[in-house]
Amino acid sequence: MAEEKPRYLIFLGCVIPYRLSSYEVSTRKVLQALGVELVEMPEYNCCGFPMDPVNHDTMLTLAARNLCVAEREGLNILTLCNGCFGTLYKVNKTLKEEEEEREKINGYLKEFGMEFKGTIEVKHLVHVLTEDIGFEKIKGAVKKPLTNLRVAQHTGCHIVRPKKLIGKDDPEDPKLLKELIRLTGAKCLDYMDEAECCGNPIIGVNETIPFSMAKEKFDHIMDVGAQALITVCPFCHMMYDLNQPRIERAFNTKIGIPVLHYPQLLGLAMGFTPEELAINELRVKPTQLLEQI
């Protein structure tokens, strides 16, 4: 019997269309090759997370509206962004489990002729890779193992925390991304404080603190000799790649660590060219790394 092909509504969020199509390009390449079918969101609005600090109900309603679109389509959501994942996953869970909250938000949604029913699931790219496709199949798709590479991972926060709401992976010592990296043949190095936040969410009000947090992360990964940092969130990626020259200036130092989206690393191991994976769009060019593979 033919295996059923996993099918998802792809939820791009805001950061990817704004700045990081490299993440989208490489994800689509890799998922297509691994037999995942992606359906475009017919109607989209921001997940809602950026509005949460100002008004919690606004966030809940924006998120629930997106969930209702997916329910109408009868498809589960796949996000590439940790922020979108955390928001949609937690709101989905809260509205499924808590009647009072569900009734309040459904009161707002009624105005759009919508009702949250709780019929779909929300997954991040990491969960689709590990839960739906599985390690064996990914391993089988690796044609050019990247055995010369030594890299470090940054899983990020909203895909694992708060533990009691997300309940996947280990927030203190995240393992899923590490295992995914090891499938490519690259060495994934342990380093100090791997679970520490990128700091990007507060960059609009304070640059010094997030830059210091990111600098500390780079110090730790350079201490163990990592050649690149691997991320699965566009917001974290912006912090480490786009902002890297500014962090270098702020601390008057040279960092020069390329930051790859995980599907770019996996794509290289599957035999895609750097061009096919939009690696040229990275701010910090991984020139030396590409020579080595």
Binding site: L12, P17, S21, E24, V25, R28, E40, M41, P42, E43, Y44, N45, C46, M51, V54, N55, D57, T58, T61, L62, R65, Y108, E111, F112, A278
Partner: peptide, 23 residues
């Protein structure tokens, strides 16, 4: 880059969510 067009958005509905929730 061969990517599909951006998903269609409903900014009028965002404005309505803002209105309804006091934002």
């Amino acid at each position: 880059a061969g990517l599909p067009p951006l998903p269609k958005t409903k900014p009028d509905e965002v404005a309505k969510v803002f209105e309804l929730t006091g934002f």
